[in-house]
């Protein structure tokens, strides 16, 4: 049974006259908390989609020397720019930092996360 079917069963059980008050209350609480979780997961997915850095954005950031130096220092900024160029040359579409890599994996499976 999938989660959606189970939730429909919970609702019909709670609506039945023979369900006890504590069960009805627990179903109500559960459904309310579930709704909050659904809002949080949709928000997370929206923020993930907004924050993945595509390769052109990465190139632009890496070329902004002042900005890159602030984060990585002079040597680090140089390496960052070289890596961004190499990544683009290799045909990558997105930044390959840990956060972006994992974010892409999560977005590829967002329906699983939504449940």
């Amino acid at each position: 049974m999938d989660k959606h079917t189970l939730i429909e069963k919970l609702k019909s059980m709670a609506a039945s006259p023979s369900a006890s008050e504590p069960v009805k209350q627990a179903v109500k609480v559960y459904l309310a908390v579930l709704a909050v979780e659904q809002v949080a997961v949709n928000n997370l997915i929206a923020v993930l989609e907004d924050n993945i850095v595509d390769i052109d954005e990465l190139m632009e950031t890496s070329q902004n020397t002042e900005h890159a130096i602030k984060y990585f220092g002079v040597e680090g900024a140089k390496k960052f720019a070289e890596n961004a160029r190499a990544l683009k040359a290799a045909g990558a579409k997105y930044c390959n930092c840990m956060a972006c890599t994992v974010a892409l994996e999560i977005l590829d499976n967002k329906d699983v996360l939504r449940g």
């Binding site: 609480v29 559960y30 909050v36 979780e37 928000n43 997370l44 923020v47 924050n51």
Partner: peptide, 28 residues
């Protein structure tokens, strides 16, 4: 370290909501 604060906060909020959901499910 490269995760931006907005995304980190969204992840934290989601993980808290998920924990609350599992607790509510256990109680139910």
């Amino acid at each position: 370290p490269t995760c931006c604060p907005v995304l980190r906060q969204a992840a934290k909020t989601y993980l808290s909501a998920l924990t609350a959901e599992k607790n509510a499910a256990k109680n139910l």
